[in-house]
Design a protein around this nucleic acid. Structure first.
Lengths: 104, 104
DNA sequence: ATAATTTACTTTGTAATGCAAACCGTTTTA
DNA sequence: TAAAACGGTTTGCATTACAAAGTAAATTAT
């Protein structure tokens, strides 16, 4: 038996942060994306995108791979199976919270 | 013309905070609720609920009315028309963000 | 040749804020 | 009448999201 209170307590703030939720949701659909693509997609500054990607990597939700392309570094992010499941679950949790809170 | 980047930038963090999103969504459905009801509904500590309600009131999203019931104070929160529209819009913005980010 | 600019990021500094814990005035109970 | 409960508010701290500054390599201009 769960309650609205449990729904609320179950929200993971790491994922709920709008920028990270956007990044994770996008990566769930395209699997892999490089830094500059994610930057133009989200409109984030490079600094903030960098920090968010690092946090997501530390949490095991994405993996980051750096390669040399041409003569420059290239940073690619890929969602992990854990990350993919987590973001799917997060959207479901939000749906559930909305549903429950909408009928008190 | 809007983009995913605009969707992201348009998210209001005051509303996005899980506890406040829950409070606002609940008040959208029941219009009026007292402090203790909201506390048991959300599972928040009294201190945190108090702070969240104050912030929502300051933002004009809810109104707070204090009366004496029996011999004790009673705090009731009510959603304002602005608040009701804002939370509706927030859920729509999340839907839109999810939709857009899911098809990059 | 080398200075200046651009690219692709990372690190730092700071202001905001969410939470737990402490507090407060009143009322009820022992 | 002491103490515990009620119905909250205020405070202190640790986290964190952002902008701005920094960095290292590559490119362009002079």
């Amino acid at each position: 038996m769960t309650s609205l209170s449990d729904d609320l307590a179950g929200i993971d703030r790491l994922i709920h942060e709008p920028a990270r939720l956007t990044i994770l949701t996008a990566l769930s659909s395209c699997l892999k994306a490089d830094f500059l693509f994610l930057q133009s997609l989200t409109g984030l500054t490079a600094g903030n995108l960098s920090t968010h990607l690092t946090r997501l990597e530390e949490a095991g939700l994405i993996s980051i791979e750096k390669t040399i392309v041409g003569k420059r570094t290239n940073t690619e992010a890929r969602i992990t199976p854990v990350g993919k499941e987590a973001v799917k679950r997060h959207w479901e949790q939000l749906d559930e919270l909305r549903r429950r809170a909408s009928s008190v």
